[in-house]
Write a protein that binds this DNA or RNA. Structure first.
Length: 364
RNA sequence: UGGGGUGUAGCCAAGCGGUAAGGCACGGGACUUUGACUCCCGCAUUCGUAGGUUCAAAUCCUGCCACCCCAG
């Protein structure tokens, strides 16, 4: 009997993933990862305990053994430290993409090997085609839940023994299945926020690790219109949290840039053309096929989770990066985030956004 | 000190005798395995202040206060 170790979060998706695997005749072991040690007992401190309780309940219900494992050290070193470094550098990282690469499909994979597992599985909404020499990552059948974006940094080899049991399901059917089997998590609300850390007041959370560095908020022509507590607490295209309003056109204000040298946050009132870009440069590329489809190719891309697919022309550069030209100007494409490429339902890979070319230069 | 103007929520701002629009900000929620965006809901028993007129005042009258502008 093939053995599968399932990463269980305490949510409904991984619960059903485990259920499906038992139905398919696998020898299933549930494993709950605890990767974040709560520093202080503020908001959401107990959710990890509740989540593990749910994992235990579900595993008892479907009759599989369960374990818990703590990757807090690895998470901190390989994910969170990078996350903080990126923020310090003025970028906006995506910790969950890194988490998948470094923890769920690396540290966890190694752990499963020690349990002599043939496969690992998670509750991700994505599909893997194992028919070829290399695994091919495909979008989930439920397009509205597709999470392939978050998997774009994982080297293809790390997917060789991975199963995504819920990738074929519609979310509504998955909920029904959980309900039909009376799973403890059937009605549980989907969790959001940074993986293993959870929903937080983001600025407050960051402040615990990146102390305030107050500076001015200025318009593109240099008028000081307010003050900020630190550039790292804001990201491109952001509206909330600026605290400025009134006067002018009456429209809301948005972050359109960061001036690291002078520690100034550049803001503008209304939907600025300056928020739009026509191309980007990316590095740290990961291609599931082992290499890009060609030196130049056309495909679709996403620059953030749940964005609709955008047509782009990709040009591979000699330095290992790539230049991505957008068919249509894109709003608030942000350095540190990931550009992920698709050919139809196939996820080709992705890379970290290094810089963008503005539709309208910020400085004349 | 004369003359004029303005004072409505944190900020803009409608209102012009009939019982406080709207926007921004902010708060809450929805959406969402990053950060964002977006959407929905909430947000002045009260109109600088003290009186007066009136059935009824943010709206009219008077005093006072504050700020702005022009004179000087």
């Amino acid at each position: 009997m093939k053995r599968v170790v399932v990463g269980m979060s305490g949510g409904v998706d991984s619960s059903v993933a485990a259920l499906i695997l038992t139905q398919q005749g696998y020898d299933v072991i549930g494993v709950f990862m605890k990767n974040w040690d709560e520093a202080d007992a503020d908001s959401g401190a107990c959710t990890a305990v509740e989540d593990y309780d749910d994992v235990r309940r579900v595993c008892d219900q479907i009759g599989i053994p369960y374990y818990t494992v703590n990757f807090a050290k690895q998470y901190w070193d390989r994910v969170f430290a990078v996350f903080l470094r990126e923020y310090r550098a003025g970028r906006t990282p995506n910790p969950d993409i890194l988490c998948n690469k470094e923890i769920k499909f690396a540290a966890f994979l190694d752990f499963a090997r020690k349990l002599e597992a043939d496969h690992i599985a998670t509750g991700h909404y994505a599909r893997l085609d194992h028919s070829g020499s290399m695994p091919r990552l495909l979008r989930a059948c439920d397009a509205s839940k597709d999470q392939s974006y978050f998997l774009a940094a994982v080297p293809a080899a790390q997917f060789e023994r991975v199963l995504f049991p819920v990738g074929e399901l519609q979310k509504s059917d998955l909920r029904e299945m959980a309900k039909a089997h009376g799973l403890a998590t059937a009605q549980k609300k989907d969790s959001t926020g940074i993986c293993f850390i959870g929903e937080r007041k983001f600025k407050q959370f960051l402040m615990d690790f990146l102390p305030a560095q107050p500076g001015d908020m200025v318009t593109p022509d240099g008028n000081v219109v307010g003050h900020h507590d630190g550039l790292m607490y804001h990201t491109l295209g952001q509206r909330k949290g600026l605290g400025i309003g009134g006067g002018g056109t009456g429209e809301p204000w948005f972050v359109i840039g960061k001036d690291l040298e002078q520690n100034r946050l550049i803001v503008e009132q209304g939907e600025s053309d300056r928020l739009y870009s026509t191309s980007l440069m990316a590095h740290n590329l990961n291609w599931f096929a082992g290499q890009p489809p060609a030196d130049r190719f056309t495909c679709t891309a996403k620059f953030r989770y749940r964005q609709s697919d955008q047509g782009v022309d990709v040009e591979i550069l000699s330095n290992g990066g790539c230049h991505v030209r957008f068919h249509q100007a894109q709003r608030a494409v942000t350095p540190g985030q990931w550009a992920v490429f698709y050919d139809g339902d196939t996820c080709l890979g992705g890379g970290v956004i290094e810089s963008t070319e503005a539709l309208c230069p910020l400085l004349p």
